[in-house]
Nucleic acid binder design. Structure first.
Length: 876
RNA sequence: GGGCCGUUAGCUCAGUUGGCUAGAGCGUCUGCUCGACACGCAGAAGGUCGGGGGUUCAAGUCCCUCACGGCCCACCA
């Protein structure tokens, strides 16, 4: 151990250790093992870029669980992979092309896709490198990408199955259309930022056909769509308009006669009470048009420019058209008024363009039959959300589910496996057909669209394991156990995996869904790369090591409470974790050099001294709490428990107490035993430093080392030890108060308030105090007489007197005593009121008895203090 | 418009089923080379638990309400 530097060097150790783990195949899951399986499939990061802090948190938690379970004896599979992220990735590549002054249409479908693949190779590798840096023990032999050929087969199989079950259909509908991405979007891919645009509500006069000067006023926020109106609708019970129903109005600009209809969908109180009906550009209106048999007129093209149907406005962009429509209406005297009105306008999640409701033909998944089993899975508790409240989000959505638009008019993704022959027969097939089964035609054209990315990620838990083949992996590792993800994709992803898993495997894809915190910037806003508030996890790992980042993130994971970890705040938190690692490192360094060897295992219990029994009990308690916390996914609790145990119990007390006992085999073995157990407990959070230390201490590699089992906890002994340590604190405080060097030996007297405690501690207190607080001699007794020339310190179990000879300062003592007295006074007062309450005594007699004895103690302490203060005052 | 979460020390956060004197880290102050650690050691100061009301013998903890911050969901044109 000659090269045991006072600091852990993460740079050198991390890559060396990771490489050796990987080479030894320690991350590889064995499908033939007879151990119980534990599987986590990674939420596949998008290949759009590198990993952010949210990924770091997410993967830290996954790896922590995997490493813990591995030590508990499970056959663990942590399956890594990436998502092709259709629209998102296509967009970043298109941006690159734009910089080069070209676009995908110039390149053509094939060479564009080659560009995207090149991008994918680059970023896919970066992501895997980052996961390795973080220490994630992924099984790299099973790495998957949603565009792998085998994965594509799984997707086509799913599609064809659903198609044949009539759960996938092609239909004409008003969907969300992004005119920039030029594709349909699902409802979940539309964002409605609040308060972004203070829109307006315009009241427009529609002239009644054939009745000069008479008109009906409609209110709209989107006047440009009026060109596509095919009716005006009022409420059937609205007296203002009862005479209008059934008549015609003349639509300005295009001079189309359209009917006034009555429908309950109208809110009488809103606007003018009359609504224009634009079936091709409004989802509601589309529904209305179907009820009333109205035609639909599309007035825009796919880039949201007005088309030929828009009469005089053809060729204009939709917003320009709005301006001109309004101007013309004003000129014609048809604009009655405008009022301020905030409308939640939908924006494309990926490019932020205002989404256009747009009538088009798309593929949909029929959700009504798929939802009920998925709802049941969560209601029955077969799938549990942590924290539970997120189940509500899932259920609310599932219970009001709409059909899922799954076709996208982009190029990057899985082509829809549907072909149409020259005579119009539609064929869905897993393998590209060569001829039409119905008419034998060999002229087959595949649907040009691709599937929604989430359609492919929905299959992730089983498609990655080889489905549709009944592979060994699939049988062994499906269903998985825990899914760790962000609340933002509960419906986009988690929900869809559940119904797909149920439909295709008959089993929920996982039993537990952990929703992690969202990482905020220093100002408490969601961290965002585009806003420049992102913190790169690599930079923190570079500066403090992967273990430090992991420990910091684990420590902050309390519930799914969001936490701030921005550019400034991430620094002290990670530093704290790094300091802890250094502390651990040095404790081990000390043990390695001072206790070069000791027989393994616990020393015989009969030889244990008070502090040995104490640290054993504390360790057992820690094992219990940490294990329990991991089980309950309370990672912050586990981390802080370990932090306190290692730093306070072990380093501050036990290590110091045993410094003069290193010749004793008991102490030597106990030191090594506690270190060994602590390293194991810490390994899931800090894999690198613990592995390095374990090996340096001549121990085992921790990856598959058994997880510690707790022995008994001795609570009375712990509290006795607490009293002994209190004495030490008292002596130290007095010295501090008087500016006396800690090393200076002074006489001390310990006055116990209870004879039992005094007897139980017997001679051991004296020894403990002597070791930790430099005293010349210690006497102890029960309720000792006051010591006039000694400084006094009051603890909860003891009073400590320290002889400080010539330095005694009555003023200081009075101040101190009065302060202690004030606290006691209020305690006594509170206890008395509570005890005078008969209801309390009746409700909780044992608590009252306890409080009573506490009160007596406090009263006697107080009396003692008062007489001392009086005495001191006389003296000065 | 509906819902969820948060508001505890200067800062960032803990506080199990209501019950002894509300905790930690950072920061601040005082003093320290004591057989690993100054990324350290020994101490100290610092909180009427966002405001108001209620339930209870007892409220940071339960209920109502308001304010502020954050996040979701929603087809009122």
């Amino acid at each position: 151990m000659t090269d045991f530097a006072p600091r852990f060097d993460p740079h050198e150790a991390e890559s060396r250790l990771y490489k050796s783990w990987e080479e030894r195949g320690l991350f590889t899951a064995n499908a033939g093992s007879d151990k119980p399986p534990f599987t986590i499939v990674i939420p596949p990061p998008n290949v759009t870029g590198s990993l952010h802090m949210g990924h770091a948190l997410n993967n830290t938690i996954q790896d922590l669980l995997i490493r813990w379970k591995r030590m508990e004896g499970y056959e663990c599979l942590y399956l890594p992979g990436t998502d092709h992220a259709g629209i998102a990735t296509q967009n970043v590549v298109e941006k690159e092309l734009k910089k080069e002054g070209t676009n995908r249409h110039v390149l053509g479908r094939d060479s564009f896709l080659r560009r995207v693949w090149a991008w994918k190779e680059r970023y896919g590798e970066t992501i895997y490198m980052q996961l390795r840096r973080l220490g994630c023990s992924c099984d790299w032999s099973r790495e998957r990408f949603t565009m792998d050929e085998s994965y594509g087969r799984a997707i086509r199989t799913v599609f064809v199955h659903l198609f044949e079950k009539k759960l996938i259909y092609r239909g004409k509908r008003v969907i969300n259309w992004c005119p920039r991405c030029m594709t349909a979007l699902s409802d979940l891919e539309v964002r409605r930022p609040e308060g972004v645009q203070a829109g307006k509500l315009w009241h427009i006069r529609y002239p009644i056909a054939g009745e000069d000067g008479r008109h009906i006023v409609v209110a709209t926020t989107r006047p440009e769509t009026m060109l596509g109106d095919t009716a005006v609708m009022v409420h059937p019970k609205d007296p203002r308009y009862s005479g209008f129903v059934g008549r015609k109005v003349l639509l300005p600009f295009v001079n189309r006669e359209i009917p006034v209809i009555a429908d309950e969908a109208v809110d009488v109180k809103f606007g003018s009470g009359a609504v224009k009906v634009t079936p091709a550009h409004d989802m509601n209106d589309w529904e209305v048009s179907k009820r009333h048999g109205l035609p639909a007129v599309v007035v825009m093209d796919e880039t949201a420019k007005m088309n030929d149907q828009a009469g005089p406005f053809a060729g204009l962009d939709r917003f320009e058209a709005r301006k001109q429509v309004l101007e013309r209406l004003k000129e014609m005297g048809l604009l009655e008024k405008e009022e301020e009105h905030a409308t939640p306008v939908g924006h494309c999640e990926r490019c932020d363009t205002v989404v256009e409701p747009y009538l088009s033909e798309q593929w949909f998944v029929k959700m009504k039959p798929l939802a009920p089993p998925a709802i049941e899975a969560v209601k029955s508790g077969r799938v549990k959300f942590h924290p539970e409240r997120w189940a509500r989000i899932y259920l609310d959505w599932m219970e009001n589910i709409q059909d899922w638009c799954v076709s996208r008019q982009i190029w990057w993704g899985h082509r829809i496996p549907v072909w149409t022959c020259s005579s119009g027969h539609v064929i869905a097939a897993v393998d590209a057909p060569t001829e039409c089964k119905q008419c034998g035609s060999g002229e087959l054209k595949q649907d040009p669209d691709v599937l929604d990315t989430w359609f492919s990620s929905a299959l992730w838990p089983f498609a990655t394991l080889g489905w549709p083949e009944e592979t060994r992996d699939l049988k062994r590792f499906y269903p998985t156990q825990t899914l760790v993800t962000d609340r933002g994709i509960i419906n986009l992803w988690v929900a869809r995996m559940i119904f797909m898993g149920l439909e295709f495997r008959g089993k929920e894809p996982f039993s537990d869904v952990i929703i992690t915190a969202t990482i905020m910037d220093d100002a408490g806003q969601r961290m965002s790369k585009s806003k420049g508030t992102g913190v790169d996890p690599l930079i923190l790992m570079e500066r403090y090591g992967a273990d430090a980042l992991r420990f910091a993130l684990a420590m902050l994971s309390t519930g799914s409470q969001d936490f701030r970890f921005g550019k400034n705040l991430s620094v002290p938190r990670t530093e704290q974790a790094r300091n802890f690692i250094t502390k651990l490192w040095n404790a081990c360094r000390y043990v390695a050099t001072s206790v070069p060897e000791a027989s393994p295992g616990l020393p015989p219990e009969s030889e244990w001294k008070l502090e040995d029994r104490w640290i054993a009990s504390r360790l057992n308690r820690t094992i219990q709490v940490v294990t329990e916390s991991f089980k309950m996914y309370e990672f912050g609790r586990a981390a802080s428990e370990l932090y306190a145990f290692v730093w306070d119990d072990f380093c501050s007390w036990y290590l110091e107490l045993t410094k003069k006992r290193l010749g004793e085999e008991v102490a030597r073995r106990m030191l090594r035993h506690v270190i060994d157990a602590s390293l194991r407990l810490l390994h899931p959070i800090c894999p690198f430093v613990t592995e390095e230390l374990s090996v340096r201490l001549g121990g085992v590699s921790l990856l598959r080392a058994p997880w510690p089992k707790p022995g008994p906890v001795d609570a009375p002994l712990e509290s006795r030890m607490g009293a002994a340590l209190e004495v030490v604190r008292g002596v130290r405080e007095v010295k501090n108060r008087y500016g006396i060097a800690a090393a200076e030996s002074l006489p001390a007297a310990v006055s116990f308030r209870s004879a039992d405690l005094k007897n139980a501690l017997a001679g051991e207190v004296e020894e403990i105090v002597r070791r930790l607080a430099a005293v010349s001699n210690v006497e102890s007794g029960v309720n000792l007489e006051r010591r006039p020339g000694a400084a006094r310190w009051t603890g909860s179990e003891v009073t400590v007197y320290v002889g400080i000879a010539g330095k005694f300062d009555p003023a200081k003592e009075i101040a101190r005593s009065e302060k202690e007295g004030a606290a006691l006074e209020s305690q006594v007062a509170r206890s008395r009121t509570q005890l005078s309450n008969e209801a309390f005594r009746k409700a909780k007699p044992e608590m009252a008895a306890e409080l009573e004895s506490k009160l007596k103690e406090a009263e006697s302490k107080l009396a003692e203090l008062k007489s001392r203060v009086a005495e001191l005052k006389e003296l000065s």
